[in-house]
Design a protein around this nucleic acid. Structure first.
Lengths: 236, 236
DNA sequence: TCTATTTCTCAGCCTTCTCTCAGTTTTTTA
DNA sequence: TAAAAAACTGAGAGAAGGCTGAGAAATAGA
């Protein structure tokens, strides 16, 4: 289960405390050991003895830019994968160009579900095997989601899902058989600055049903007043 | 049995003393060690040496908001799960992000039974194993309630229960073999501001009997003039 | 720039649930 | 044995929760 230290260390670097807290909390919950830093120099100091396996690094820091921080940390001989965070301005191209090796980047705002998935993929790529998550496929009954190819199959058929539908499917799959509330879904699957109400989850569940549950048996079940749950009806 | 100190410490923070008292009493009764605070700064002061495992925290406090209190407590290095309480008014905006990292939230008014269940689920999720309640299933005879899936089975058959029926069943199960009065049931299963009379409990017991006790032997027994009791008849 | 896709909101509809009430049955007491 | 008290249950009004189609707004792609 979650909560145990499994040895994967992540350093989160962002000057907005709200953001770094949010990220840190999420990553801790899924079992990582996490430290946070608000500036480049602070990040450097912490990295030195924390020796993180991966860094979540905002490219825009008060003292220096993220690439510089990244370079310095690697110069220390610390072998680390980096997930860059960038605002959605024009900088994306530049970031993409500078993202080399096993590194990756995401634009703010993002969903926590997506962040965790990227971190896991990153660790896999750089060869740090995470316990229990070394498989790139998540399965439930005849529904299968492939992390590497971003494909989802039901009963052997390839489904055509939009990005949000994909993320929602993954979240349901990860929590298969347990009830998840609409607010949980909203908090994990939607971008963290989303200000709408949980009604949108109903809409997307409706979309998903038309793609996933046109096959028998239906897997997405409503638990009135509580949330949704992936289950195989035959279980009784 | 309930009543013993099992080591789980809960801090309840709400400026309405009626509410925090109500919650504290309920939590103490089921075996938690409880402290209360009416303001954010008071909460912080108490948390420092009380080191709670979980906090029940109103988001609307006189001095500062609940999120700030939460952040400060965690900055003290206290690893704590939070159950946020929110009013059901226009505040729904601020409710975003509350279910991150094992945390949860409930809207006022709520039922005490629901609150206790959420606290237990929270402690389980963040890895604080509660004695005697480390399982997500509650059982009595061939009646079984699953907290994670929200399913109830009798003699292997899945029962279809409404939310209130589910909560009532849980309350009876937790108090199995003991007589619980109609007013006790009303106080625990219905929202704390419910202004109807205890007659509704009879109605719901009737509903439950038609779902649970169509199987033999009947488990729900009336103790005339006192209340109801879950028992296996052969026991006498 | 235009087009296609995706996201999001909203309103109408339908289903289920909650709660009250009143008539009935059961048990107790006088 | 009759009257009173307590509990049971069916019916129904109104509320709440959830589903979905339509369309506006935002975004990405050609």
């Amino acid at each position: 289960m979650s909560g145990e230290k499994n040895g994967q260390r992540i350093l989160v670097v962002d000057d907005e405390v709200n953001i770094s807290d949010l990220i840190a909390t999420s990553l801790r919950f899924v079992g990582f050991e996490v430290r946070t830093a608000a500036t480049g120099s602070q990040a450097l100091a912490i990295a030195e003895d924390f020796k993180p396996h991966a860094i979540v690094l905002d490219v825009m820091l008060p003292d220096q830019d993220g690439f510089e921080v990244c370079r310095q940390i690697r110069n220390e001989g610390i072998d680390v994968g980096v997930l860059f965070l960038t605002a959605k301005d024009g900088m994306e191209d530049k970031v993409a160009g500078l993202t080399i090796g096993g590194d990756d980047y995401m634009t703010k705002p993002f969903s926590l579900e997506e962040l965790v998935a990227r971190i896991r993929a990153l660790l896999r790529r750089i060869g740090v095997v995470e316990i229990e998550h070394d498989d790139e496929k998540i399965r439930f009954a005849d529904l299968e989601l492939n992390e590497a190819t971003h494909e989802v199959h039901r009963a052997g058929h390839l489904l055509d899902l939009s990005p949000t539908e994909f993320t929602l499917t993954r979240y349901l799959l990860i929590n298969s058989d347990r009830v998840v509330s609409k607010s949980q879904i909203l908090d994990h699957v939607w971008e963290y600055d989303f200000r709408g109400d949980a009604g949108i989850v109903e809409t997307y569940i409706s979309y998903l049903r038309k793609k996933i549950d046109i096959f028998d048996p239906p897997l997405i079940h409503t638990v009135r007043g509580v949330g949704y749950r992936l289950k195989v009806p035959s279980e009784q």
